[in-house]
């Protein structure tokens, strides 16, 4: 890995931090001062976030300048290394997690949503696993049993024991 790659990551990170800082500062400045209520100017809502955003901007600019000067990169940057298996697992994990968290949970009955997610996740993760020991049939049966048991167990613990009302 060349030294330039971590520095590019730092440069991009610095840009994001600076952008957040500047945008936050502008928004803080636009917050009301409540002069009509004769509010103490030192208690206005935008004061603390404005100061924090100013500090964040300074730190972001410092990160950018450090990266441009070719310094830094002392900390390991794992995002630069993506072996094929790792990338496939990540794409699958993010896709399935989003499917459950944003689509299924709350819109589909809990038992069905949770059972389907755990079944799909287990099967998918095992199929992407290079060291898979189980054949397709035992894997499918095992994942199905896990999905049913986990969905019912989680529902029982939260709904019956801890009296939480779950959606769907």
């Amino acid at each position: 890995m060349t030294r330039a790659r971590p520095l590019i990551t730092d440069l991009l990170g610095g840009l994001v931090v600076t952008a957040i800082g500047v945008a936050g500062f502008v928004e803080s400045w636009r917050m009301p001062r409540f002069a009509e209520r004769h509010a103490d100017p030192f208690t206005v809502p935008g004061l603390t976030p404005g100061l924090l955003c100013a500090v964040l901007t300074v730190l972001g600019v410092a990160l950018i300048l450090r990266a441009m000067a070719g310094r830094g990169g002392a900390v390991a940057i794992p995002i630069l290394e993506w072996p094929a298996g790792s990338a496939q697992r990540m794409i699958f994990t993010i896709a399935s997690v989003f499917l459950y968290g944003f689509v299924l949970f709350g819109n589909v009955p809990f038992l069905i949503a949770t059972g389907a997610f755990i079944f799909i996740f287990t099967i998918g993760a095992e199929l992407l696993n290079a060291d898979r020991e189980l054949g397709l049939l035992p894997l499918g049966v095992g994942a199905l049993v896990l999905a049913i048991v986990a969905a019912f167990a989680i529902r029982f613990i939260f709904v019956s024991v801890f009296l939480v009302r779950l959606p769907g």
Binding site: V97, T114, I118, L146, F158, V164, L166
Partner: peptide, 18 residues
Amino acid sequence: REWLMGAIFVLCVVGSYA
């Protein structure tokens, strides 16, 4: 981990919601 992480994520979701 393939058999565990799905259930862990469900616990994260339900725990946050609860």
